[in-house]
Design a protein around this nucleic acid. Structure first.
Lengths: 354, 354
DNA sequence: AAATTTCTGATTTACGTACATCAGAAATTC
DNA sequence: GAATTTCTGATGTACGTAAATCAGAAATTT
């Protein structure tokens, strides 16, 4: 059997109360006694039984996810995954909630962060927009002792505890590399559709893509980046216009969330010959892959990200270390042949993470 | 607060003991009383607090992983992941152990299954070899009430509860599809290196690969399958011989574990022009991707598989349902540009799954 | 040496569930 | 209606930890 607090007390020759004080960093223990207890803990290889501890504490952890509003399918999927995780979150003593704010709006995000801090939550996960207001809001949260993780789009250099999302530079590089291989020697320029350069993930993906394309043996023209604001209508018209103006367009990299408009424009123009690489496996991009309009989709698993965020925030709230390797989010590559089955309906009885 | 057994007792107007009898399916409750209690449970939306239940039971679940022995790097990684998971398995009240048996040996596997059943374990995960002995051993395990999952290689049609691994037909199709795109119009035959057709995963991958290749616009000769028994030396000589005899070889699909020998043979022949697609991201295939000898690696995440197997076996042991969607193992595609960072050293302090 | 402060021990209750025991009520059989 | 069987209630202990209380020991100050 694994050792308990009682074993520590026996081994160290102190009382249970003293062990408790040492374990939970409470005052009222002399340095020598504390050392004795710590020695016993180390000798026995004691590890706290978190289940029992949480039971005794009956503590709950209210965690807030701040996501951009609007019809960005990936963000809505993230929201759905938060709700899904919330169904069995009671077992892990977490209470998840979602707050939505206007997309690409640093001031609104900062206000939402401050509001969450005021509500005294145990942790915040947010899709970061770049801006000084956001930096200082994160600093205020951390100063108030509230763990903070960035989700999907990072804000390196800020006070955030952790970033949960893919390496976006590598994602862009992967897109560029696949595009190069798929196009091979076929001539023609490549277009890029982004949402906004005010979120770092888009900027980073572009950076990686350009780097990979410029490393190709065959030099290829990259058209100026189209900014569709992750809006279906705007994305549609931008792409439709581009297709009309550039008849020999060879490739199209969609690094944001404008895929609905993009696919509609491609279908309308009947251009199945363009090599299309998009991000995030949603209903639209899945249909695009199946119909052959889209050649590859780079994806980050929303469910994994939500569960990872919950784990990290809980660990930070408890002052526990995080296994960075385990929390690394993988970049999935999907082509027509390795599409996963359609996700099933929510099953509240399911336990565990993934 | 979420409801407890006490709330049910109050609501149903019965005692705690009766609620307990209903919840745990113990005898001694009239049908009418049972119905009252069940109504109260449904009305309150009660869900058992598993943490408290496990604490009270102080039950442990001994789970056994039966893996092929030998220097198959992926199997050794699986073994390492089992040990890694075992480090914090105490928290989940599981006790993991690994048993190795000769590879491709149905009788040895069946014997190991019987031995595990005799030891009265709570669950068994095994890399299935095809054979009648294995079928009947699985049936004996299930008859003895021991949950059984197949790992990596399935045995559909057997009594196993669940399969933990990728869809190997889709994996083969993906390999074929990528091979076709990467080769484009380049002429030349393609070779396939397998381990043994006695494990179904190899057979299924081959099936998918051939299907995808035959669906290509450009017809391409596929050489007879080379069976390397997952042995580095044998694989080396088979590939070396093949490279010598087929100078215009265009592609090479390695669907088993003979990658060390394969890469050595390619390097020795200086053939960086052959399009190579291999399975499982190991030290060898990673180095191959980085050096450019290997073009793509299809991977299943050993850590995910182990954690999924543990979750499924525990759920089966407790008679709980399994969320199949959540337990589906993804097929990862790795190219040079989306290689994850080298795995870190084991960190026993890490909590949670992924 | 007395008074004070700081530390430590002993004990208790609680968290939510599992499980066992025993007495008594209700239903069934004779 | 008595005897029996089957069901139900009441109660208690246990799991491993958290947290509180209070008494007493040790160290410190006066």
């Amino acid at each position: 059997m694994r050792p308990t607090v009682h074993d520590i007390a026996d081994k160290a020759g102190v009382s249970l109360a003293t062990v408790d004080r040492v374990l939970n960093g409470r005052p009222g223990v002399r340095a020598v006694t504390r050392a004795k207890v710590e020695a016993a803990i180390a000798a026995l290889g004691y590890v706290r039984d978190v289940a029992a501890a949480n039971l005794a504490k009956s503590r709950i952890y209210p965690l807030v996810f701040i996501l951009p509003e609007g019809d960005n399918p990936f963000m809505r999927e993230l929201e759905a995954e938060v709700r899904r995780a919330g169904l069995h979150s009671a077992a892990e003593r977490t209470q998840l909630s979602v707050v939505t704010v206007p997309a690409f709006d640093a001031a609104a995000l900062a206000a939402a962060i401050d509001a969450a801090v005021a509500e005294n939550v145990s942790g915040i996960a947010a899709v970061a927009v770049d801006g000084p207001e956001v930096f200082s809001a994160i600093e205020r949260a951390r100063a108030a002792g509230v763990p903070f993780v960035t989700l999907v789009s990072d804000l390196a250099g800020s006070a955030r505890d952790h970033f949960i999302g893919v390496d976006n530079i590598a994602a862009g590089r992967t897109a560029g590399s696949l595009m190069g291989r798929f196009l091979a020697t076929r001539p023609g320029p490549v277009a890029v559709l982004a949402g906004s350069m005010r979120v770092r993930d888009h900027g980073e993906r572009l950076e990686g893509f350009l780097a990979a394309m410029s490393a190709m043996l065959v030099a290829r023209a990259i058209l100026p980046v189209l900014e569709g604001q992750d809006d279906p209508e705007l994305s549609f018209s931008l792409i439709a216009e581009c297709l009309a103006e550039v008849p020999d367009l060879a490739g199209l990299y969609s690094l944001g969330a404008g895929n609905r408009g993009l696919i509609r424009a491609l279908a309308a123009a009947g251009r199945t010959d363009v090599c299309v690489i998009a991000h995030e496996l949603t209903a639209e991009t899945r249909a695009g892959l199946e119909s052959g309009l889209v050649d590859a989709v780079l994806n980050q698993d929303a469910g994994h990200e939500v569960r990872s965020a919950v784990r990290v925030l809980r660990a930070k709230a408890d002052g526990l270390p995080v296994n960075a390797a385990q929390e690394r989010i993988r970049l999935d590559i999907f082509i027509r042949d390795n599409l996963p089955a359609e996700p099933d309906a929510v099953d509240p009885s399911a336990a565990g993470g993934n």
